[in-house]
Amino acid sequence: MSTVIEQAVQVRLVASAPRLESVPATLHYDRRDPFAVRIDFPAPATLEGADISWTFSRELLAKGVRTAAGVGDVRVRPYGYHRTVLEFHAAEGTAVVHIGTGELLRFLDRALTLVPAGSEHLYLDLDHDLAELLGDAR
């Protein structure tokens, strides 16, 4: 069984212009980091012209498809019946994207099949993480 889930999605980038621009993105879940999800944006979709990744809690994403969630750098909330808004806050500014709620729910279902909610701790390799941390201290 694979330990990684990737799902290509189209998101709508909300810009200051009156239109929404469709851009590609990839949702990513790896059971070796069972509490987190990641969304990757390729360089052409970013203002900086470089690949951008945002990592945040799987629980935040799951909650945000139903009700507004998040108070920090990443915020998620439903938008109508079929879309979810993801806001990414950084010192450079805020990026707002709309994504189909159905796509998010399919991704979350796959991630929950791989690592059920409440069992994330069983997939942590604390010995390996501690060894890496101590190895960096040398």
Rank of each mutant, 00 (worst) to 15 (best):
L86A: 03
L108P: 05
V4Q: 03
P34R: 04
L122T: 10
W54E: 03
A62F: 04
E21D: 07
R83F: 04
A95T: 15
L104V: 12
P24V: 09
D125R: 11
A8Q: 10
G102R: 12
V65K: 06
I39D: 02
K63P: 00
A111D: 06
V97A: 01
L134W: 02
R31Q: 15
H89V: 14
T3N: 12
G49Y: 11
T94M: 09
L27K: 07
L134V: 13
G80H: 08
R12A: 04
R12P: 03
L86W: 01
S2I: 12
D40W: 10
A117K: 15
P18V: 14
Q7F: 04
Y81H: 08
H28R: 12
V96D: 00
A17N: 14
E48R: 05
I52F: 06
E48W: 07
G64W: 07
G118I: 08
L86K: 09
E59G: 09
D129M: 01
D125C: 00
L47Q: 04
V65C: 01
A17Y: 09
D127E: 14
R75D: 01
H82Y: 10
F41Q: 02
H82L: 13
H28I: 13
D30G: 03
L108W: 00
P42Q: 02
A95V: 15
E6W: 09
P18E: 02
S2K: 15
G118T: 03
R32T: 13
L133E: 00
E87W: 02
R77N: 02
L122I: 06
H89R: 14
L112K: 00
F56G: 05
A8H: 13
P34T: 05
V74Q: 06
D51Q: 09
P18K: 08
R31F: 09
A131G: 06
R19Q: 09
L47Y: 01
V23Q: 01
L20R: 03
T67N: 07
A137D: 01
A91Y: 05
V14T: 10
G70I: 08
G118F: 06
E6L: 13
A45G: 13
A68V: 15
R110H: 09
D109V: 14
V9S: 05
L27Y: 04
A45R: 13
G102T: 11
A117C: 01
D109R: 15
D30E: 01
A117W: 03
T26E: 02
S22T: 15
A90I: 11
L47V: 12
L60D: 08
H121Q: 10
A117H: 11
M1Q: 05
S2L: 06
T84A: 10
P116M: 01
E87R: 10
A90P: 02
L105M: 05
L124P: 07
R83C: 00
W54V: 15
A91F: 07
L126D: 11
A95N: 03
S53Q: 11
L27D: 00
F56E: 08
H82K: 11
T94R: 12
L27H: 03
R19V: 15
